[in-house]
Design a binder for these strands. Structure first.
Length: 553
DNA sequence: GCCGTTTTCGGCCCGACTGTTTTCAGTCG
């Protein structure tokens, strides 16, 4: 899969170079192609082998040829030629905040500056003063940006599970301070992307200034970068940027739609609007002077004659066409989850831990919970729950809430080796058995694969599970699969297991993010193993067959 | 460079904010 991200990176670099060269629309075209390639569930090589490169959104004749060239030779001549035209350090200038292609180009052509170090030297030498459009503030801004870039390495995007508690704190802080009425997090956080570049908060309020004052005063906030009448941008102590916009209630839906994105989704909606004689902006949707919607997202989509589209799938990957046909998938919801198939008790587990799991499960209205009773850790060592805990599991199981015993086996175990008292089987890659064996599972129940590490590790497991009625755990962190792999799993007819939060710290964001990733992958209820009834999933249930997972994509 | 049930050519989202400006350019999202 790394071919895909490498190719995407190459096209991004081409876009940067074209930007500096002053090209108008090509850079966006290359970036669009890069985004599409990155979100592909399939290896670029496989797509190319089928001759389907041009079916990738944003990939036309020219870029398809460059992909072919890259796949066969490992290089792209066009890129090599561009790098000869632009000094290598110029692209680094673009990474500086407040400095874009126009400015980078001017520094290069008018000052002969070819990179960040030379720019810093030019500022020290006073060579920027007198340059048209460069007053003292602008020069100071560039100088500060250079110093900041040097001090702190470019932060990049943050894993969503890391941003999650921060976002919750900011929401809680803003709710506690009077003034904000409606309040939502938009952006890629709302779409539940695996990583977020910043946080986008949106509020309605009679008194925006008070909301901004309260926001700036939150303990997580390090500095206010900019503040206008409707918008404030701050930097948190951990370096994360957060934008807060305050809008009128009748604009809230339009602003939420706009700031949720994705960019490609928005562009698609605006194109449709234009074709239908409408105009969309972040304040509403208009036919000529007449305003035809904007208070809610539903109003916005309805005005375009589209069904509302869940944020997680707003990526311009066909969801707009589905909405036009009224065929938006009904994505799995937390209320669909009927059980949990993978609960670990703490080390040194005691009967009271079982009681806590039972209480959690009742609160979540689950009908069954699979508790890992014996298994193997990542280092290969074995563990087993003590007798009193096993007894409590047996006692506490009821018709209303069935407790199942789960055996976790190393990746290379033959399913036949699993003793009959283990009702559910979780396959766990370990250090000594990180990959599946060639052996297909033969058990009545498709195995669940969990503790898989990362995108590259997921692929062989998806192949292994194909046709085996198996399922794979989706969610944040290195031990689960992300939404891209989850989409590949669904396309292969493999079910997903969603984390419920039972037996976990209430602050642990694994459950909501797991659900978000599953939705992002396009999973419907029928594709989620633990949305099926107890009877369909467990051995003690009457039906022996697991719910056959259906692709939701 | 991509794209198209109005188009194979002529478009390409659109507005806030900042700094530098006598009316706008650049950056950002």
């Amino acid at each position: 899969m790394s071919t895909n991200s490498d190719a995407a990176e190459l096209f991004r670099e081409i876009a940067d170079l074209l930007d500096v060269l002053g090209e108008k629309f090509k850079p966006e075209a290359y970036r669009r192609a890069a985004r599409s390639i990155e979100s592909l569930t399939e290896d670029l090589k496989a797509v190319a082998a089928r001759g389907d490169l041009r079916t990738i959104p944003g990939v036309g004749e020219a870029i398809a040829e460059k992909i072919e060239e890259y796949l066969t030779t490992g290089k792209v001549d066009y890129y090599e030629r561009l790098t000869k035209q632009v000094p290598p350090g110029i692209a680094d200038l673009l990474r500086l905040p407040s400095l874009g292609p126009k400015t980078a180009r001017r520094f290069w052509l008018e000052l002969g500056v070819e990179g960040p170090n030379e720019l810093a030297a030019a500022i020290e030498a006073g060579r920027l003063t007198g340059l048209k459009g460069f007053g003292p503030k602008k020069i100071e801004q560039v100088r500060a940006a250079l110093a900041a870039a040097k001090a702190a390495p470019p932060s990049g995007r943050m894993p969503i599970e890391e941003a999650y508690p921060i976002a919750q704190r900011l929401l809680a802080g803003l709710r506690a301070s009077a003034g904000a009425e409606q309040l939502e997090i938009a952006g890629s956080f709302r779409r539940c992307r695996e990583t977020v570049g910043d946080l986008d908060l949106l509020a309605t309020s009679e008194t925006p200034a008070r909301v901004f004052d309260a926001f700036s005063a939150l303990p997580d906030v390090r500095e206010v970068r900019l503040r206008g009448p409707t918008k404030e941008t701050v930097i948190l102590t951990n370096g994360l940027q957060v934008d807060l916009r305050v809008v009128e209630p009748e604009e809230f839906g339009a602003a939420l739609l706009y700031s949720t994105g994705s960019k490609d989704h928005n562009v698609r909606l605006r194109t449709i609007a234009r074709d239908r004689g409408l105009k969309i902006n972040e304040y509403g949707i208009y036919r000529g002077e007449e305003r035809v919607g904007g208070r809610t997202e539903e109003e916005m989509y309805r005005a375009l004659r589209l069904a509302w589209i869940p944020p997680e799938i707003r990526e311009d990957r066909g969801e707009v066409e589905q909405a036009a046909r009224g065929a938006v998938p009904r994505l799995v919801e937390s209320g669909d989850l009927a059980g949990d198939l993978h609960v670990h008790l703490p080390d040194e587990a005691r009967p009271a831990d079982v009681d806590r799991v039972v209480a959690d499960a009742r609160r979540a209205k689950l009908r069954y919970v699979g508790i890992v009773v014996t298994g193997v850790r990542a280092d290969g060592s074995k563990f087993e729950l003590p007798g009193p805990v096993l007894e409590r599991i047996a006692q506490a199981s009821s018709a209303a809430l069935r407790l199942e015993r789960v055996r976790e086996v190393p990746a290379d175990s033959a399913p036949e080796a699993v003793p009959p008292e283990a009702d559910l089987l979780v396959v766990r890659p370990t250090r000594s058995a990180p990959r599946p064996t060639a052996r297909k599972p033969g058990a009545t129940f498709g195995p669940i694969v969990a503790h898989v590490g990362g995108e590259d590790a997921a692929r062989p497991w998806i192949e292994w599970l194909r046709g085996a009625s198996g399922a794979i755990e989706v969610g944040p962190g290195p031990e689960r699969i992300d939404s891209v792999s989850a989409r590949a799993a669904l396309e292969a007819g493999i079910g997903l297991v969603v984390v419920t939060g039972v037996g976990r710290d209430p602050e642990d964001p694994a459950a909501p993010i797991s659900l978000g990733f599953a939705r992002r992958a396009g999973a419907e209820k029928g594709s989620v193993r633990n949305a099926a009834s107890a009877a369909a999933v467990t051995r003690s249930g009457s039906a022996a067959r697991p719910a056959r997972s259906r692709s939701g994509a």
